[in-house]
Write a protein that binds this DNA or RNA. Structure first.
Lengths: 228, 228
DNA sequence: CCAAAAGTGTTCACCGTACACCCATGA
DNA sequence: TCATGGGTGTACGGTGAACACTTTTGG
């Protein structure tokens, strides 16, 4: 991938720059994040966030989206810059600045991770039972989770977890998982409907031996806007 | 400062990394930011944000604080990472990633900027009448202002503009300048006092031919905490 | 005694919260 | 007909917004 013979010289030292992505999704009623098992040192055999080096002629957002797509096979996901981590000792090889992003994968897209060439393994992990992570990736995950939960209050970020169409119960379920608390069904529906964020598809969802649920979709251009 | 003869080589290209700081303060009832006039190309003679290259063995926060102190002579200011800007074409010389910060200078500290060696001039500029800025610095300033105003709602960030002791009218004045709207005096005082953010110093402030104002200080460790 | 800013309470509208029952379907 | 999740309305309390006059000082 990289030309191994050529070298690049500068009159003063430059750090390496990477992007790392915290990829959230919800599986089986639990919040999950995507991790790759490192094949090479440092931290060989240790789980880490997907990510990689910034190409010199590549925008930062593009780099994060590329890494995300390489690992999940998915494009068009919600992706937002989180924070830049750069403690001098965070990587034992050389000085590495990591621009961290987080991404949300909708429920239905059954993302099957693809192990990259430098990864021994890749997979979803329950957020509540994460293994020890390489580098300072535990700090990155912690901040990403904080940001995600904070945004539930004042944005419609939860919609990024939803498939094209969904029922209000499914949406409520996502909120309950993220907030770790049950919500009142009537109040929840009142709030969502009054914000004019969703519209009925007109179809119904038949999911068992009970009344079918109305199917909704997010109103265009409102999927992840800030409220107010 | 930098060794001009030595070169540093890498097996693949590394971007340069800088920090840039948007320094806010309030002068004469108006929001101001600190700008330096560039002495050298590119954008020679153009106003820009204070900032500079990250030393290879220096933490990012430290770099921003150092740049800030070099320009203002002040330490211990409120300083927070904002966002990382890295469009491939943002600097015509080479690929430069800029980790942007913003800082708040209290009212009273009469910060007299010090022109650095690579600056032709340095000074405060009214936020409403900024000159054309170098690079993508206008974008950075815009985002910093957005963040600042957003934080007024859910944090006590405005306290970072206040000197050690202040009156409630002075505090209200800061909020009014930042929000660009007058606030009701009774409601404002009720809210601030009920949040238990300030305590009386016991002293009074005599400021003219009218009733003296009570002097307050921020309660320790509450200067810039998030509310809730 | 006059000008100027400091200081002080109450009322009302709205919003978030608590809470319980009927509906439509499949087995 | 029964089990299961879908769907609906009202009452209350707390919080934010509107609003005007008295107090203290210096000149």
């Amino acid at each position: 991938m990289r030309a191994p013979r050529q070298t690049f010289s500068y009159p003063y030292p430059h750090p390496a720059v990477t992007t790392d992505v915290v990829v959230f999704t919800i599986h089986d009623g639990e919040l999950n994040i995507l991790l790759v098992k490192r094949a090479n040192p440092p931290f060989a055999g240790c789980w880490a966030l997907p990510g990689g080096f910034l190409d010199i002629d590549e925008d930062i957002d593009t780099c994060a989206a590329r890494e995300l797509e390489e690992e999940t096979g998915l494009g068009g996901l919600y992706l937002e810059q989180l924070y830049t981590f750069g403690k001098t000792q965070r990587d034992p090889r050389e000085r590495v600045i990591s621009i961290a992003y987080y991404a949300l994968v909708p429920l239905d897209v059954l993302a099957t991770p693809h192990a990259a060439s430098d990864a021994a393994d890749v997979g979803w992990h329950r957020f509540d039972e994460l293994p020890t992570l390489a580098f300072d990736h535990a700090d990155i995950v912690h901040m990403a989770h904080q940001r995600l939960v904070a945004k539930l209050d004042y944005s419609t970020i939860a919609f990024a977890f939803m498939p094209e169409s969904f029922t209000l119960s499914e949406l409520q379920n996502v909120y309950e998982i993220l907030l770790r608390q049950p919500l009142d069904k009537r109040n929840f529906r009142k709030r969502i409907l009054s914000l004019d964020l969703v519209e009925e598809t007109g179809r119904q969802r038949r999911n068992g031996k009970h009344r079918p649920a109305r199917e909704y979709r997010a109103r265009s251009a409102k999927r992840v806007e800030i409220i107010k």
